[in-house]
């Protein structure tokens, strides 16, 4: 059982300015998750007739991407490859101070305390559009051949849970690792080819319009990613974007049929 002093960012939607409040949390078991520690704090705040701390969470098993706190300066804390809900109190030395901040980005407006609105990520995803697929009777298994390593690489990209830690950790609040994961999971598969180039153009455009920053190749995103998605996927996105900029719809405006003047 351990005690901690936690500094938590408190801010109501109606307030322009937030502030840190320090709380003492006591008798925390090392087997509690970080969110359970906050549950303990909230129980206490409620019993003291105070307003509990608002934070996002849902599955609490590291797969939904809802949780996300900046813990001592690192989104999801300093443990490698974990979400906040899968971070355990045994990783924190007893009687120390823990500072908890919300994800900070122009594209993530604050809702309350530690909760931010990440629907900009959903809009980026939607801007990618549809994937052309066969309808009708189900195709035979293995009708479309995919090399094992390609399937694995696409799967690595597809493990992105859209939590936004890459944005939160980036000095530029760039969403490039998110966009790279979401374009690559399709770009690496045969099924993703028909709209591949246009998809990279429209998703990058939407990222820009949502107010995310640009990538300066710092690679803090891959270090913070709870799914350990490497920054090499950003190089893949850069290639596709470059290719798309040069070749997408290249014949569209090039009909040279002109009637001859009399």
């Amino acid at each position: 059982m351990a005690n901690y002093r936690v500094n938590i960012w408190r801010q109501d939607q109606t307030e322009k300015q937030g502030r840190f409040e320090q709380y003492r949390v006591e008798d925390i078991s090392e087997d509690m998750s970080f969110l359970e520690m906050l549950d303990v704090l909230n129980e206490k705040l409620i019993s003291d007739d105070l307003v509990p701390v608002a934070f996002d969470h849902d599955c609490r098993e590291g797969i939904c991407g809802a949780c996300g706190l900046v813990i001592n300066g690192i989104p999801h804390g300093k443990e490698c490859g974990t979400t906040t809900c899968q971070l355990y109190m045994r990783h924190f030395t007893a009687d120390t101070e823990i500072t908890i901040e919300p994800f900070r980005a122009q594209a993530f407006p604050l809702i309350k305390d530690l909760m931010v609105d990440r629907s900009s990520l959903d809009r980026v995803l939607q801007s990618g559009g549809y994937v052309s697929v066969h309808t009708g009777a189900a195709a035979d298994a293995n009708n479309v051949l995919i090399a094992k390593h390609k399937a694995d690489d696409a799967f690595t990209a597809a493990t992105c849970i859209g939590c936004g830690a890459c944005v939160a950790v980036c000095r530029n609040a760039s969403g490039m690792l998110f966009v790279a994961a979401k374009t690559s999971q399709l770009a690496l598969l045969p099924q993703g080819q028909p709209e591949r180039l246009e998809r990279s153009l429209s998703m990058v455009k939407q990222m820009q319009d949502e107010g995310f920053g640009n990538c300066s190749n710092h690679y803090e995103c891959e270090a913070a990613c709870p799914k350990n998605i490497p920054a090499s996927y950003i190089a893949q996105l850069n290639r596709d974007f470059l290719n798309a900029s040069m070749t997408s719809k290249e014949y569209e405006s090039q009909t040279h049929c002109k009637s001859l003047e009399e």
Binding site: F20, V70, N72, R104, Q106, N172, G213
Partner: peptide, 8 residues
Amino acid sequence: ARPVAYAV
């Protein structure tokens, strides 16, 4: 893109 800075 990052209007409010982090404390830590």
